[in-house]
Computed example of a mutant assay.
Amino acid sequence: MEIYQHNRTFQENSTVDNLGDLVWYLLPIVVTVPPMGLPMNAPVIRLLLGKPGICSTSEILTLNLALIDTLFCFMLLAEYIHFVCSQTVEAANFLAWGLNQAGGPMMLCLLSLDSYMAVCHPLVFLRLKNPNLRVSLCLVVNAFAASCCCLVKVNARFKWNVIMAILSTTTVTISTCNILILKSLRRSGPSRKDIHPVKKRAFKIVLTAFVLINFHYISPLVFYLLTQIFPEQFSAISIITCLCYLNVSVSSLIQPLSYLVRTKQLPRMRCHCGSSAKEETVVSV
């Protein structure tokens, strides 16, 4: 207990002393992520909302994930400006981090479960294909993510306990779905031509979620464990903090980019932008 109290006191003192450094450590994230994340998520939201009729179940979850990433970019900008003005420990606990590290992984987990049900249990999936069910699940996830953000803001000591529980659960769930879908695809036949397009799309969704969880969200957990085990060697606020949070924040622009590439919308957007630029040039001439 004395060692724990000493580690916590050491981290709190180092945090207070390094708040000025934290402003500069977070500056690269604020300069790069929101200006790139907002243009990436905007076309995804426009494409999904512009579709006639009811979207597929995975697109409902993807739309909600894009909205979470867009809100994260706006909150990150607003909270960083507030932190620069005040530079207090309370202002350093960004609500945006809780939204990104709780809402994003849970939505990726729902996408994986939805794809798993579509591939491995198609009859049950057809019975539960009502879009209202997906909308209700999105509302539950959003409410839970908002609760996590408020909990982190009130008491930052609960932050990593909540994040570790969420990331551990989502990682295990997504990995299990990925393995089960792979097994189902191997049973479809020795030739890839025998694989149904729905199964191919589901596998791409789960694989994307699996890569995002392991690449973007595991690094901050490893860094937190190192700061708890070796508090004198690993400061709570350092250049490693910037790299970890930059890695987490980049997920808000990698996810919409992967959707545009997966649905083959990115080349169309480039062609559309190129043709519009040519038309403007002709008109100006």
Rank of each mutant, 00 (worst) to 15 (best):
158 F>M: 08
245 Y>F: 15
222 V>C: 05
154 V>G: 07
186 R>M: 04
169 T>Q: 01
127 R>T: 07
125 F>C: 12
150 C>S: 09
194 D>V: 11
165 A>Q: 06
231 P>S: 06
228 Q>Y: 00
233 Q>E: 12
178 N>T: 00
133 L>W: 12
244 C>S: 14
146 A>Q: 10
240 I>K: 00
241 T>H: 10
248 V>R: 01
193 K>Q: 14
211 V>M: 12
219 S>E: 11
142 N>L: 11
250 V>G: 01
228 Q>N: 07
245 Y>D: 13
146 A>K: 01
152 V>R: 06
228 Q>R: 13
131 P>S: 11
204 K>I: 04
246 L>I: 02
138 C>V: 13
171 T>E: 06
186 R>A: 08
164 M>P: 07
172 V>H: 04
151 L>W: 05
177 C>M: 01
195 I>F: 00
160 W>V: 08
162 V>T: 07
175 S>H: 09
253 L>S: 06
155 N>E: 15
201 R>A: 09
210 F>Q: 05
207 L>N: 02
197 P>K: 09
238 S>H: 08
198 V>Y: 00
218 I>R: 13
124 V>E: 15
251 S>V: 12
174 I>M: 00
126 L>Y: 10
142 N>Q: 10
176 T>G: 03
237 I>G: 08
222 V>T: 10
145 A>P: 06
232 E>K: 05
139 L>H: 02
159 K>C: 11
161 N>T: 05
236 A>Q: 07
182 L>Q: 06
135 V>K: 09
234 F>N: 05
153 K>W: 15
252 S>H: 02
133 L>S: 06
185 L>W: 00
210 F>I: 00
147 S>K: 12
190 P>I: 10
166 I>A: 08
212 L>R: 01
195 I>K: 03
207 L>E: 06
128 L>K: 07
125 F>S: 08
233 Q>F: 07
143 A>R: 03
154 V>S: 13
252 S>I: 04
236 A>P: 12
235 S>K: 14
130 N>Q: 14
238 S>Y: 06
212 L>G: 05
221 L>Q: 07
229 I>E: 04
135 V>N: 03
192 R>K: 11
230 F>H: 10
217 Y>V: 14
187 R>H: 03
237 I>Q: 12
197 P>A: 13
219 S>F: 12
206 V>I: 02
238 S>P: 13
157 R>D: 14
170 T>C: 15
230 F>M: 08
206 V>G: 04
214 N>V: 09
153 K>Y: 15
149 C>T: 09
250 V>A: 14
156 A>W: 13
184 S>L: 02
193 K>T: 14
138 C>K: 03
152 V>F: 14
130 N>K: 08
234 F>L: 04
200 K>N: 08
150 C>Y: 13
214 N>D: 05
